[in-house]
């Protein structure tokens, strides 16, 4: 990942065994989890993460002087708590230390990489407002909804003066005023679509007693329905993208092709072109998936080196060919489509 900084670790007061365990764990983190850390000298307590043996004289004397910004992992000693402090009981085993460091590194990486808030923040790249050849054309539904989500605006959407759907970008909710209203919106072209700003009180009173849906659901369905043949602005065919979270597929939105693309992206960031290759699906599916994920803020576009497999953390190993055969039969047996 582009801004992934190397994590520096200070070992303080560790005995020979402690050092050995730590070195094994760091090797495992590097080889199997793809997390590279730099181990500082024993007397250098300046690391991002300081591992302190609280049963040692050195550990106890250094600990109070550490900065509150440093993450402290305490081994042994009495249970301690506080900001940026975690402790691990002795004896410290490789697996326990590895799991703990994995969690800490991920958390720290998350801090560097993107905040939790960012997960729910709007997509980085705005939707293409218009087609290049028709600069004056009206914005399409996907653009209107994406803008409402990003700007937090409240809108009424109508066809031929008949208001069908109310959208609240601030609360990320929408309400259909008629049965099948969403489908009617999806079906018409931008020129037939009208939208006007309404105020929140208006939205409240007109949706009172109606079922509110999640705006992201509407956006997702809209993006899927639009079957775009062009990627969103800011994402090229070769731009690696990272999936922040597995999309919230609604019941009507379960699609095996999307499962496969999501599974590929969950494994490692990839570009549209790479996804077409690894999944064997047609480009239209991949573009649709990227558009939908981008619309609901689940994608991060990375600089080209972001897709370097060396730099990502594979979450699990690939199945053997024999297992693939068995899994394909299982899918068939359960009546599941397998492309």
């Amino acid at each position: 990942m582009s801004n992934e900084a190397e994590l520096r670790i200070s070992p303080v007061g560790l005995d020979a065994t402690g050092h050995k365990v730590l070195q094994v764990v760091l090797a495992l983190l590097g080889d199997e989890d793809g997390i590279r850390c730099a181990l500082l000298d024993a007397d250098d307590a300046s690391g991002h993460l300081v591992i302190v043996d609280m049963d040692s004289q050195q550990g106890r004397s250094v600990f109070p002087g550490l900065s509150s910004g440093q993450v402290k992992l305490l081994l042994g000693g009495p249970p301690a708590s506080g900001r940026n402090i975690v402790s691990l009981a002795k004896p410290v085993h490789v697996n326990a230390l590895r799991d703990m460091l994995l969690k800490i590194c991920r958390r720290m990486q998350v801090q560097l990489d993107a905040s939790l808030h960012d997960l729910k923040a709007p997509a980085a790249a705005p939707m293409p407002a218009t087609d290049d050849t028709a600069p004056a054309a009206a914005p399409d539904l996907l653009t209107i909804l994406s803008n409402a989500r990003r700007e937090g605006s409240v809108l009424a959407l109508a066809i031929d003066g008949d208001e069908l759907v109310l959208v609240n970008g601030a609360t990320r909710a929408f309400a259909a005023l008629r049965e099948g209203a969403e489908e009617r919106l999806f079906a018409v072209g931008p020129e037939q679509l009208a939208c006007r700003q309404i105020d929140e009180a208006d939205f409240e009173s007109r949706t009172h007693g109606r079922t509110l849906g999640a705006l992201d659901n509407l956006l997702w369905q809209c993006a899927v329905h639009a079957e775009p043949d062009r990627l969103p602005a800011g994402i090229g065919d070769e731009t690696p993208v990272r999936l922040k979270a597995w999309p919230n597929f609604t019941r009507q939105g379960f699609r095996n092709d999307y499962f496969r693309i999501a599974a590929a992206l969950a494994r490692q960031p990839a570009s549209c072109a790479q996804l077409v290759e690894t999944t064997g699906l047609d480009r239209r599916s991949v573009v649709g998936f990227i558009t939908a994920c981008n619309a609901v803020g689940l994608l991060v576009a990375l600089p080209p080196e972001g897709a370097d497999p060396e730099k990502v953390t594979p979450l699990h190993k690939a199945a053997t060919p024999e297992r693939r055969g068995l899994l394909a039969r299982l899918a068939q047996r359960l009546g599941l489509a397998q492309a």
Partner: peptide
């Protein structure tokens, strides 16, 4: 989804 994101894990959740 947010908790999995915090954990650095993109797992299917339904």
């Amino acid at each position: 989804q947010a908790r999995l994101f915090e954990r650095g894990q993109v797992y299917p959740v339904f």
